[in-house]
Structures are given as C-alpha cells and as structure tokens.
C-alpha cells in the first residue's frame, strides 16, 4: 500500500510542532510586512524627496526572487558582520519582501482618498502626523483589507522557502522525515493538506474582518 495510516499518525506530532514554526514565521513576517509597508507608503507622501529612493527600493525588492533575498540575509550579511540565526534572517527577508508589496497596496489606498480630505486637514491646521493617523489611514485601510489578506495567504504559502536555510518549519521537517524513513508520501501530503486548511481558514477570517470593517465605515 502506498499510504500508511500508522506512519501518518506517528509523524503527526512532529509535523504539528513544525507547523507552529511556520505559523510563527507567517505572523511575525506579516506583522513586519504590514507595518514596514505602511511606513514606506506614509514616508513616500509625507517626505516628498524620499519618493524616488523608496520607489527604487520597492522595485528592487519586488523584482528579485524572495529565495535570493533569504540567502542574502543569511549567507552574505555575516560577511559584513551581521550574523542572524536562520529563523530571524528568513522572517526578516519575508517581511521586507512583502513590505514592498504592501506599501504599493497602501499607496493605492491613499490615492483613493478624496483630495478634499487632505485640504480640510490643512484648513484645520492638523499636523501631517495627525492627518495620517486620524483622517487618512482610517479611511484608506478598510477598502484594502482584501488585498492585504491576499498577501497574508501568499506569504504563508512561501514560508517553505525557509527550508532552504534549514529553518525547522513544515517543509524542512517533512524533508527530514522523508530522508530518514524513505517515505515521502505521508509527510508531503500532510504538509500540503495543512497549508490548504490554513489558507482556507485565513481567507474566511479575512472575509469576516472585511464585513466587520464595511459595517463600521460604510454608513
């Protein structure tokens, strides 16, 4: 028989521990992506002379493979005296990579804010910090939640790349089980099913968040 249920149940606890690492990498990576992306988008508007630099940076990050960026942080940075453990380097790379995508999403959100909102903020003499915090961001975020959510799921599905620098996440764990037992069917299938289940769950969560935000803002 190709599929061995006993073996599948035997490796489940090991994979479950690895799943926690994958989820941690996703959550920390996305928190970094969402906040750094927002900072990039805000600075680009608030400090006009940074616009060109940030555009080039974002383009550079988006136009090179994530795997190369992970390798860069893990293998090249130590040459410059910055030594990061595999998990930190990997999560940092994922966070920065997706921050570039998120910053474009935020930018689209800001572009959709009516010019009159900025002008009213000037007429009330609000500082640019207050304008972003109280006026622009609260209006810009709800419509872009679906786009940000898509990036959360995409980021999650890219965490197996961390296996390339030996982070003990799901994929790496499945590979180790496979090479030790010469059985790849069960670990690979279980990892695939886990990603499927988590992706469906997060998509559902994002949809309900979207509905909640729409109820609060679209009066």
């Amino acid at each position: 028989m190709i599929w061995d249920w006993a073996f599948a149940f035997e490796i489940l606890p090991v994979l479950a521990r690895a799943a926690i690492v994958s989820i941690e990498a996703t959550l920390i990576g996305f928190a970094l992506a969402a906040s750094l992306g927002l900072v990039l988008a805000v600075v680009r508007i608030a400090v006009p002379w940074t616009g060109w630099t940030i555009s080039v940076l974002v383009e550079l990050i988006r136009s090179t493979p994530l795997l190369i960026q992970i390798f860069f942080l893990y293998f090249v940075f130590p040459k410059f005296g910055v030594v990061l453990d595999a998990f930190t380097a990997g999560v940092l790379a994922i966070g920065i990579h997706y921050a570039a995508y998120c910053s474009e999403v935020y930018r689209a959100g800001f572009d959709n804010i009516h010019r009159g909102q900025w002008e009213a903020s000037i007429a009330l003499n609000l500082s640019s910090w207050t304008t972003f915090r109280d006026i622009i961001i609260p209006q810009a975020i709800p419509p872009i939640v679906p786009a940000l959510g898509n990036y959360l799921v995409a980021l999650f599905k890219e965490t197996p790349l961390l296996s390339a620098i030996a982070v003990l996440e799901l994929m790496q764990t499945a590979k180790i089980i496979g090479s030790e037992t010469f059985r790849y069917t069960e670990p690979t299938t279980l990892v695939g099913l886990f990603f499927l289940a988590m992706s469906l769950v997060s998509a559902a969560l994002i949809r309900s968040l979207e509905r909640l935000l729409n109820r609060r803002t679209m009066r």
């Binding site: 009159g116 909102q117 009213a120 007429a123 009330l124 003499n125 500082s127 109280d134 609260p138 803002t217």
Partner: peptide
C-alpha cells in the same frame, strides 16, 4: 478657517467628532 464647496467632512467621524478633532489634536 475655511468652508468648502464640497463640505469635506470626515466621513468616518460623527458631527461631534468632526468638531473636536482639531481642537484636541492641534
């Protein structure tokens, strides 16, 4: 102070919140 043709109220704030935002923050 200025009043605009298109009102430019902050749509995510109530009338009261619109009126206290700047006095509090500025």
């Amino acid at each position: 102070g200025m009043v605009f043709q298109s009102f430019n109220l902050f749509p995510h704030m109530t009338a009261m919140q619109n009126c206290i935002e700047a006095p509090i923050t500025v």
